[in-house]
Design a protein around this nucleic acid. Sequence first.
RNA 1: CGGGGAGUGGCGCAGUUUGGUAGCGCGCAUGGUUUGGGACCAUGAGGCCGCAGGUUCAAAUCCUGUCUCCCCGACCA
Length: 580
Amino acid sequence: MRMSQAFGRTMREQPAEAEMASHGLMLRAGLISKLASGIYSYMPLGWRSVRKIQDVMRKEMNAIGGQEINMPVVNPGDIWKESGRWYEIGPEMTRFKDRSGRDMCLAMTHEEPVTDLARRFIDSYRQLPCVVYHIQTKFRDEPRARGGLVRVREFTMKDAYSFHADQADLERYYPHMCEAYERICRTCGVPVLKVLSDVGMMGGSMAHEFIYATNSGEDTLIRCRRCGYAANREVATFNKAAGQTPSSAGNRRGHAEKVHTPGKDTIASVTEYLGVSPVLSIKTMAYFTQEGDGPVMALIRGDLDINERKLANFLGTAQVRLALPEELEAHGLVQGFMSPVGTEGFKVVVDDSISAEYAYVAGANEKDYHLINVVPGRDFPLERVADIAAAREGDLCPVCNAPLSQARGIEVGNTFMLGTRYSQSMGANFQDEDGSLKPLVMGCYGMGVGRLLACIIEENRDDKGIIWPITVAPYHVHLLSLGTGSQVLETADKLYDDMQRPGIEVLYDDRDESAGVKFNDADLLGMPIRVTVSQRSIEAGGVEVKLRAAEESTIVALDEFENEISGLIRREFSRFVPEN
RNA sequence: CGGGGAGUGGCGCAGUUUGGUAGCGCGCAUGGUUUGGGACCAUGAGGCCGCAGGUUCAAAUCCUGUCUCCCCGACCA
């Protein structure tokens, strides 16, 4: 491509709307252009990268048995009513009626249409397992778009779906998909962590996220740098016992006893006042579910915090929220002194950090009073016990006991073992070997194309611009000519033609611009290999060749150029694509 | 949806407090001089100041409403 004819322009200054580095670079380099909040056009350079990313995805999906299909963006409401999500999903799904008044929606993901395909075409266990995928536009009316392509409303996603005869077969297949995900990210130059994640609105039994760790990410993950344990904060577990075993078991034989604790309405103040470790206290919180049920009492050891995601999952609701002070009062609960002892009629969820083996300090549900010698199971019921604790920086790894650390990241992809959530509700059955009809066992695997592009740039850049991995660079080579001397122009024109013949992708800066402008644009646009033709280079014996990622350049003689450049391109590819 | 900020030419911004009919840098066009790290000179094009009402002799500027965009939170496969 000759830059003199290229559609789009670079910008010297970063547009004010850009917050993240990758967002600013994409706008400055002219890769994308915003049409509305969270809705972007791709310009020629950006689109070339997108197509390369998609091809990397295709190659890996095909390699694990995926067959590419394409499903519609506009869906009839009917199939979403069958799965139930028509009613579960809120305003983030765009709905409308067609001219004859039928309910329609924009697909935000494609479980429903793919399950419809499966029930039409899969009849027998002989057809299983079976994997299809597509790369398609999705629309989610996000409450808030942000970070350029990181969180948008219209986006393209690679979505794969696998169908199995049973859970065991899904579990056999699942790791292949995870490995494919890791290869895709590696090929694109983005390091990712595979972390355990919440199944969220997708349902199912097990899920992972593939996260690019960066401070500008919006997800929080908990990980162990010693053994590699990693999980989204929403589901992260930790060892609650190690190193924190209460030294004193209190007086388990004594009755729960009311003590005066004036103004001590926090765990820290009351345990200090009574001279007890927070480990031997019980923190009581009150929540309401999204459906308005409550208050539900959530109990946890005084030194820990509640993880609201875990609590919501345990209660089978989408979301919980803390009760408001006036709600507590209306139910006769005393903030700061709340207690499960002596209060009737509340659902009580107890974190498994609380043990019937110890006696604790707990609220007395009366202002300025606490109870001591409270024994779980004796003084209040231990009926609903679960892990509802929030893992924090410094807590101990559930696997190896090393301290956990917390990091931020961007979710590039996710994998779910869906099970029969959709096949059951939509009647996607197959006949098994024994002649019985069974619901298909499904997995689904998503990966955001634009989001991966944002991560590629976030990871591969310096203060001058993008440093593309050659695998996804819009062009392999950035050729530029300096000056208007006829020898320079003729040489550059010839190199442009010569390189393209064997399939090298060349962006040719043939504009009548000063050297500074051309070099700075080359750095900003970030093609992996830069070739400069100038009077100076010709006098030095050829053309100057420089890697975007390197400091130094070399002069290559014209008769060695073809070999040299193709060798360089091969070496660049081998950095990202392991030999195979 | 709650809190904060902002809408003035393609991009970055000034002007708004103290109303008087729009300006700077970059970019763009034409001509000339330049040519290895964002050159220089000259001459130009391009804006009903987000939109709608109102106040006023007069509104980018004051008042009311509304839309859009950005950030934090909520939300999120």
